[in-house]
Simulated assay, not measured.
Amino acid sequence: MFSISQGTHASKAAQYDDLLQQTRALIADETDFIANCANFSSLVYHTLPELNWAGFYLFDGTELVVGPFQGKPACVRIALGRGVCGTAAQERRTQVVPDVHAFPGHIACDSASRSEIVVPLIASDGALIGVWDVDSPVPNRFDDEDALGMEALCTAFVALTRSKL
C-alpha cells in the first residue's frame, strides 16, 4: 500500500487513482454491502496518513446511523443538518472542514479530531444512502484535491455496491 503525500497535484491525484484501483479490486467480487463498507473503511484508514477516523454513516430514512468504520467509538445517530455529516447529507455536498472547532454545530465524537472531510453518498436515482466521513488530528489536513479524490472513491464505491443490493 502507499501513503498519500503532501506532494504535487499530479502525484497526489495519481495516488488517489491507485487507491481507486485498489478499491475496485477489493469490492468488485463481494456482494455484501456491509462487508464492502468495512473493507473500504479499513483500506482508506490504513492507506492515507494522518487519519484518526474513517467510516460510514448510513441513512435509515430519518437520520444517519453509524456504519462500519475504523477509529475510536463514534456517535451513533446524527440528524440531517446537524454537524459536518448531517450538513453534507442535507445539502448533498462534500464538506471540507479545515478546523472542526470553527464549524457551527460540530459534533465532537473524538476530541483529537481537528479537520474533517465528508462526502454524501447518493444513489443513481438521487436517494441518499449516507455519508463517507474521514477525520484527522491535523488541522487543514484535507484540501480540494482530497475532495476530488474522495468523491471519486465514493462514486466508484456506490456504483459497485448499489448494483448488488
Rank of each mutant, 00 (worst) to 15 (best):
F103A: 10
P98H: 08
A108M: 11
H101Q: 13
G83K: 06
P139C: 00
S111M: 15
L128N: 09
V100K: 05
C154Q: 11
F103P: 03
Q90S: 12
D146L: 03
D144R: 14
G83Y: 01
S113C: 07
F103Q: 03
G126W: 06
R93D: 10
P120V: 10
A152M: 14
W132S: 08
D133I: 03
V96R: 02
A108N: 11
A147G: 08
R93I: 12
M150G: 04
V138C: 01
R93L: 14
V97A: 06
P98A: 10
P104M: 07
V131H: 09
D146N: 02
E151N: 13
D110V: 06
M150I: 14
H106E: 05
R114D: 04
S136Q: 03
E145I: 15
V118T: 13
G126C: 06
Q95M: 14
D133E: 02
S136H: 02
L148Q: 15
G149P: 03
S124Q: 14
V134F: 02
V134L: 12
V134W: 03
E116A: 11
S111V: 15
H106W: 05
A156L: 15
I122W: 03
A123R: 14
G126Q: 02
D146V: 01
Q95V: 12
V97G: 05
Q90Y: 09
V119Y: 09
R92W: 01
P137F: 06
P98V: 07
V138R: 09
D146W: 05
D125H: 10
A127G: 10
S115H: 10
A88F: 10
S113L: 02
E116R: 10
V118R: 06
S115W: 07
D144Y: 11
E116H: 11
I117M: 03
H101D: 12
V138F: 00
A127M: 07
P137G: 11
V96P: 01
A89L: 02
P139H: 05
T155Q: 15
M150L: 14
H106L: 04
A147K: 15
I107M: 04
I122K: 09
M150N: 12
V84R: 07
S115C: 07
V97K: 05
G86Y: 10
D125Y: 08
A152C: 11
P98L: 05
C154F: 00
E145N: 15
P98W: 03
C154S: 15
T155W: 13
S136A: 05
L153P: 00
P137E: 11
S124R: 14
R93G: 04
L121T: 07
I122S: 08
V96D: 00
I122N: 09
L153N: 00
T87E: 05
S113P: 05
I117W: 02
I129Q: 04
T87D: 02
P120Y: 11
L121A: 10
A123P: 05
Q90K: 14
R92I: 01
D125C: 10
W132P: 01
S124W: 06
R141D: 08
G130C: 00
L121G: 04
D143A: 08
V97C: 04
M150S: 10
G130S: 00
A108K: 09
G83F: 04
P98T: 05
G130K: 00
R92L: 09
R93E: 15
L121P: 04
F142V: 06
E91T: 14
G130F: 08
A112F: 00
V134G: 03
G149C: 07
A152T: 13
S111G: 09
R114H: 11
A156Y: 00
D110W: 06
D110G: 08
